[in-house]
Design a protein around this nucleic acid. Structure first.
Length: 373
RNA sequence: CGGGCUAUAGCGCAGUCUGGUAGCGCGUCCGUCUGGGGGGCGGGAGGUCGCAGGUUCAAGUCCUGCUAGCCCGACCA
């Protein structure tokens, strides 16, 4: 997508804190014009928020595919009959939205997809030969949004950098070992005694946000819904099942929780909605306007999506908006600097500024993002 | 589903106790001076006070019922 002029964009920022938002990430998303609440727990993603959401989704998707996932899509509107088979139609209470279609058939708004995938599976997979050769499921407790106690080495794991041969039992076992032996608990399951066994240098206590989980179902769904395969010796067994997921929108919130200050969001380069912001300090000044246009086009030519604040606003208002929405880099353009042939490149994270020629600024931005494809 | 809190202009709030002309800040619109961190001055628009009943000469304010939102819990992938 091309760079965007703020005067033509839709960015409804709020100067004051909405009263209903208590959590800092929620507050900042509302203030930065990323989301709009439509009902309890139901939000519209406004342009700025949508860009970040899609960006994170894309990263997660790419990594999942790299790890061997095969994407597919299942309906949210689901027939009640499948849920009756698994027994969950009655287990769920008012939490589940139940509806009837025009033929008076019972339908539901599926909060999850186990019944769907089990039905797909049982329709098309009959033999053990059709199954992938997975050796083990890893089961992690959900972390919740709470205090967490963990061994430092848990977060030091660098999974993306390694190649694993899933047919090699020893290799897989080694990874499992890495996951399952290190201590990592929420306050609900925390054991002070065991935690004290962790080397003191690695002992960490902090706030945790659940952004994903892994569940092991066993044969809960396969048995009740008849998802079986024929084994080597001709027998019939229900398949072992499990699931895992990443909450993309929650991940977005977690990033803000971890990366903000009192002025607003600070986007990491990898997920920022725009690579940089261009602030024209004196809209209508011939030199400033021309310099901004030049930057805007030069960055666009290099495929760098930036946001040009070309509004008729005071400098202070433009700075405040940029700080709030959190673009990691800002190019400030004004008559004063241009008289010396320079613009200012400012890091949102450190607040440090550096004066340089417009060409040098473009080169720097390009260089910075070469490291964040 | 339980417990607590809230509802007044687009947003943030006062006014409710003690009933009597609908207020403030921000935003917005017009004009003007400005122009390197949410600017100054002048002028304007904008509200069936969440909804429905009731008490009263009179209800934003008192009473009853409802609805919506927020927080905590329960539930859950």
């Amino acid at each position: 997508m091309l760079p965007m002029r703020l005067s033509r964009y839709f960015l409804p920022v709020l100067k004051e804190n909405p009263s209903e938002a208590q959590i800092v990430s929620h507050r900042l998303m509302l203030r930065a014009g990323m989301i709009k609440q439509q009902a309890a727990g139901i939000y519209s993603w406004l342009p700025m928020g949508y860009r970040v959401l899609k960006r994170i989704e894309q990263i997660v998707h790419e990594e999942q595919v790299r790890a061997g996932h095969i994407p597919m899509l299942m309906p949210t509107l689901q027939p009640a009959d499948l849920w009756r088979e698994s027994g969950r139609y009655d287990d769920y209470g008012a939490e589940m939205l139940r509806i009837k279609d025009r033929h008076e058939r019972d339908m539901l708004f599926g909060p999850t997809n186990e019944e769907m995938i089990t039905d797909v599976f049982r329709s098309h997979v009959n033999s053990y030969k059709d199954l992938p050769h997975t050796h083990e499921f890893l089961v992690l407790a959900s972390t919740g949004e709470s205090e967490v106690f963990y061994d430092d080495r848990v977060t030091a794991l660098k999974l993306g950098d390694r190649e694993i041969d899933y047919d090699n039992w020893d290799e897989v076992a080694k990874v499992c070992e890495e996951f399952t032996t290190l201590y990592a608990r929420t306050d609900e399951t925390h054991d002070e005694g065991v935690f004290n066994g962790v080397p003191e240098a690695n002992r960490k206590v902090g706030r945790g946000i659940e952004v994903g989980q892994i569940f092991y179902f066993g044969t809960k769904y396969s048995e009740s819904m008849g998802a079986t395969v024929v084994t080597k010796d001709g027998g019939k067994v229900p398949v072992e099942m499990g699931s895992h997921g990443i909450g993309v929108s929650r991940l977005l919130g977690a990033i803000i929780e971890a990366s903000h200050d009192d002025k607003g969001i600070i986007w990491p380069e990898g997920v920022t909605p725009f690579k940089a912001g261009i602030v024209n300090l004196k809209q209508g000044d011939a030199a400033a306007d021309a310099a901004c246009e030049g930057l805007y086009k030069a960055l666009a030519a290099k495929g760098l999506e930036c946001l040009y604040d070309d509004r008729e606003e005071r400098a202070g208002a433009k700075f405040a908006t940029m700080d709030l929405i959190g673009l990691p880099w800002r190019i400030t353009v004004g008559p004063r600097g241009l008289a010396n042939g320079v613009v200012e490149l400012t890091s949102r994270r450190t607040g440090e500024s550096e004066e340089m020629s417009p060409e040098a600024a473009v080169a720097r931005i390009e260089e910075i993002y070469a490291a964040h494809p």
